[in-house]
Design a protein around this nucleic acid. Structure first.
Lengths: 343, 343
DNA sequence: TTGTAAGCGTTATCAA
DNA sequence: TTGATAACGCTTACAA
């Protein structure tokens, strides 16, 4: 704004209280060694002026910002938005604020790099990166400077930490579940690796396990770069209709499963009556009993908590090396997966 | 971290390039008046050192942070989390970053004040406040310093802006809809004003309109302070069962409607077979056709865009006074609301 | 218990 | 085209 009255500084408070700025600084930070009378005078002056400390100047000298940077690729995706909430909460508990940056684009590109560089330039004390795509070299580039944790993607890079839910276990469990229901021909939607590494990994894990179980597998593919609005579902369902011998469709995200189910509904197809459909992530509210989605739950809240803790521990010196933690997920048995239809 | 190699400064770059820091500053900001050879030398040096500008120091002298602060009361609530995403995106478009703070507690209390003060101390250039509770005097207190917009709550305070969706129109429309379906006895869940001002307002608007239409109205109440996990639904449904002559239940949020529907499902009750249920907010994914919720859609994306624009315009001097904008919502006719059951 | 003064990493002004 | 030098608002020795 052009003519905003500039905020009062420590000097204004000092002048008003009739003391030096050092005293004000000490009072405001609650340090000892200040006469009670002086202390009260200063506090009153600060109050009257509506003084709020300038953290920018403060950081300048203390070299601390008490801020953690969070980069998520697609804030509109349910998994990320829920992670964001969890990170937020835990950061507050540990006494840190959160600055968020998001990638916009379709590919991990210069934008992503700029966004991360911006966080670093803000002198965040740690970085939580959650992107299914961002190249690990790019992340590693900042790792010598501040602690970094990659949340939600397995990556055993020694220079930064990672917290994730094992994609192989999840994918295989889902395959086991669908096999146990009696399906012998199963389709798996597998997105390109360039779309999302973890989603690619889980689909491949499903396909691998189905192969081990001697189940005939159909690999479907689709391109989709934002989880928020999935457009490819009609095409996927059409594919399935061309291969009616395949009685189940395993998708790599709840969002995909819902889009498929919505499209099926518009064609008067039901799950599992016509086709069993499963999701992945187990994110509320997709797990509502009203929908009854069969899915694999990733402990997103826990991922957030552990991510912040590992960062905070490193900042505070309680942890000196990057750690890699794999968490357990959980199969959620809903009503969209069932025995194959009798034909 | 204890022994992090401290980040290279402009001085390190200057030394390496064999020039003064002033030249480095000019080169890095792309200013004219630097010899091409010098420019290249400096850029190379910066690159080699992995130099990243210190925005903290930069802000110190420019007195700009290009950052907008966002305060939401409950980041886990679908409405807020979606708003957050929209704010984020639009801020990026306008060239600003976003720092988020969230209130934790049950009441608007000192926590909230601290959180806002923290944002102000970070020298954000504007503030988006989205809380159904935060007293407007508290907000106004900072309004002389930076532009503020209250998002999602009607409040005609002259010192700051507001962008919201008219609660009276929304509540009345929902009442009209349920009346048109033929209900003559309708229950409305009305939360205490202390829980959420907008939710209170819309419920009261429903009750008022139902009264105008000579419909017998039953006011139910419940306490609930976080939208994320609603615990009061079983009690509400039990209340309804005690008053079977009431054939519809209007709730003040999608979250509440879903919780009620889930509980009904567990009791083998259907909507609208046994009871018509409506939500409010119209937030995806609650609006999925799989659930078919009847609700009132608030244009949350638009609220976010307009909120950021009004802040950015004020920061940039394109707008000199706070503005108050009321947006239109939209009735979403789903399948959870229908004609009253024939008994 | 209080005050003085140096310095954090930049930008910006003014000379050279 | 470049380089000194003074801010910016605060913390932090150190001196009084």
């Amino acid at each position: 704004m052009l003519n905003t009255p500039s905020a009062p500084t420590i000097l204004d408070v000092a002048a008003r209280a009739g003391v030096s700025k050092s005293v004000v600084s000490r009072v405001l930070r609650g340090e000892y060694g200040v006469a009670v009378a002086t202390r009260d005078k200063v506090r009153a002056a600060a109050q009257e002026l509506g003084y709020v400390v300038n953290s920018v100047a403060q950081s300048m000298v203390t070299n601390r910002t008490r801020t953690i940077g969070v980069f998520v690729r697609d804030a509109a995706a349910p998994f990320y938005s829920q992670l964001l909430t969890s990170l937020q909460e835990q950061a507050a508990i540990r006494g840190y604020g959160v600055v968020t940056a998001t990638g916009a684009g379709r590919f991990a590109g210069p934008d992503e790099n700029t966004a991360i560089a911006r966080l670093v330039s803000l002198r965040v004390e740690g970085l939580v990166v959650s992107s299914g795509l961002l190249p690990s070299e790019l992340i590693a580039q900042y790792a010598s400077r501040i602690p970094i944790v990659l949340a939600g993607r397995p990556e055993q890079n020694p220079t930064f930490s990672s917290i994730y839910c094992d994609e192989n276990v999840g994918g295989a469990s889902m395959a086991d579940h669908i096999a146990a229901l009696g399906h012998t021909r199963v389709a798996v939607l597998s997105l390109a690796r360039e779309t999302s590494i973890p989603q690619f990994m889980r689909s491949e894990a499903m396909i691998r396990r189905l192969g081990d179980l001697n189940i005939e597998t159909l690999r479907l593919s689709a391109e989709e770069y934002s989880e928020a609005r999935i457009a490819g579902a009609p095409a996927v369902v059409s594919q399935m209709l061309k291969h009616p011998e395949y009685t189940a469709l395993l998708t790599p995200s709840d969002r995909w499963a819902i889009a498929v189910l919505e499209n099926m509904r518009s064609r008067n197809l039901t799950a599992p009556g016509h086709l069993s459909v499963t999701g992945y992530d187990g994110i509320w509210p997709f797990t509502t009993d009203l929908i009854g989605l069969t899915t694999w739950r990733q402990p997103v809240g826990e991922i957030g908590v552990l991510a912040i803790n590992s960062i905070a521990d490193q900042i505070e010196g309680a942890l000196s090396h990057p750690i890699h933690q794999s968490l357990n997920g959980e199969l959620i048995v809903g009503r969209t997966g069932g025995p194959p239809p009798v034909r």
